[in-house]
Design a binder for these strands. Structure first.
Lengths: 135, 135
DNA sequence: TTTTAAGTCCACCGAGTTGGTAGAGTAATC
DNA sequence: GATTACTCTACCAACTCGGTGGACTTAAAA
């Protein structure tokens, strides 16, 4: 399951995608419209900014905005950033790989199955962007 | 990601699948062979027993064993039992469904995408059993 | 019938994560 | 210089995860 934080992140990003090219959007506006706790949203947006997905402007007329166009921000990137690994096991993760202690990965049925699951998931989330999330 | 508990559960179940029809297997044997902390494994096996997947026998010659044949125990069942929802969002979960507070589910791109992910995953884990995990 | 092997059960624990809040600081604009 | 709005640090409660300790119960064998 995606954490609440991830769910909030996607709501906020969806909102910023709809507002893309409208200039900076206030944190408070996003929080209000998307019903996200304000201070918690601050943390999330800051994290997204540090990762280069968002940028911000201080002072009057300031706020947050997407740093690239929505079709260049992959869903998979956001999940990995806020939620962590997409794979179900560390030993089948591409970005968070860890060797499996007690199976040799060559003859492990669970391993093989989880690779299939990972690929089926990646096939979707690697090929969708924020733009695909607005209907 | 599957929790460590889930990973241990699968290791133990794999072992019991290999030993199916050999009679009860000691917790201590499973723990040793699969390198799982003994007391933690106790909890896991007990939980699997309460769910009807395993059964046990007390006293000398006792131990744990599968309650049904391995090809009748689906991977999806074990994941849901020990790890929880398979879906990435509560609003697209079949067994742990919760209504989405801030999207109407009819016009939510994230929702639609996560249904695809769920189905791709279920297509694999609903059609595999413990028997498929041994190679 | 006593011993003993083995599972059962329950309480507890430390560390980390999640979800969230408070408030001072800093930068940009008017 | 006042105002606006993001930045940053610190903090918090609740929960989960991974794990332990120990008393209890059952059942079989001696």
């Amino acid at each position: 399951m995606l954490s609440k934080k991830s769910q909030y992140a996607f709501k906020a990003l969806t909102y910023l995608t709809e507002r893309f090219n409208d200039g900076p959007v206030l944190i408070s506006e996003i929080a209000k419209k998307k019903k996200i706790p304000l201070k918690f949203l601050e943390n999330i947006l800051l994290e997204l900014k540090k990762a280069g997905i968002l940028d911000s402007k201080k002072g009057k007329g300031g706020g947050y905005f997407l740093n690239k166009s929505p079709e260049k921000i992959k869903v998979a990137t956001v999940i990995r950033l806020i939620n962590g690994p997409i794979a179900m096991l560390p030993c089948v993760s591409l970005y968070f790989y860890e060797r499996c202690k007690n199976c040799n990965e060559k003859h492990c049925g669970l391993h093989d199955m989880m690779i299939e699951v990972r690929d089926a998931t990646l096939n979707i989330v690697e090929n969708r962007t924020l733009k695909d999330l607005i209907v």
